[in-house]
Design a protein around this nucleic acid. Structure first.
Lengths: 108, 108
DNA sequence: CGGCATCCACACGGATACTG
DNA sequence: CAGTATCCGTGTGGATGCCG
């Protein structure tokens, strides 16, 4: 059996979902944007230590994979807003189980 | 807030759980062992394409992280059995939500 | 402001050969 | 049988500098 999501395929449905979210910073990006939409600079400020290259690469991935929306306003200075999509929200529900596991096992 | 599991810590509970399972082959190892305990050679045969080095490194990780048990029998030829621990089973329950997400989104 | 280009160092997966 | 040792190519993260 092959599982498909957009351009990705895998024999293992775990792996397919993990491939969308397991890169560095992605879980935190989703965690932050789950609370509120943010523009690029605010997002970067919320993630101390991330570089522009890595952050923009992660945002590109998440946007291309349909988990985030990217809205660019034709203003000066430029403004770009990132927000969760419905698919992003649904995957957040799925990974909430991972959060709960960590909380339940906390300290062990 | 800091989340702790054995030797690992993270500010983000998603990331803590993901760090345990997101390396290559780990999801499939867990998927296979969820069905039945297996010895090393059978596990390798169930994962076409994996090398000894990578497989044994992943098994070491999972064992050290308490998700798998490793039982070595003092026989000739040697026999080593890998099986899920209760913690491994509980994390499988958590990542089942990821599997369900992939299945629900399948083909989109 | 919101990136991208470049460069570097290191971690990782994979192939092969060898061993208790 | 169940690994370890070694080497290698690639990918990834991070730092810095520049640009529309």
């Amino acid at each position: 059996m092959k599982y498909v999501y957009r351009n990705r395929t895998s024999d293992c449905p775990y792996e397919l979902t993990l491939s969308l979210i397991s890169k560095r910073w992605k879980p935190r990006i989703l965690e932050v944007l789950a609370q509120q939409s943010l523009r690029y600079g605010d997002l970067k400020a919320a993630l101390p230590g991330v570089s522009d290259k890595v952050l923009s690469a992660a945002l590109d991935d998440l946007t291309r994979d349909g988990l985030l929306s990217r809205t660019s306003f034709a203003e000066i200075p430029p403004r770009v807003e990132y927000a969760m999509t419905p698919q992003g929200d649904s995957i957040l529900t799925a990974i909430a189980a991972l959060r709960d596991w960590a909380i339940r096992e906390n300290g062990r």
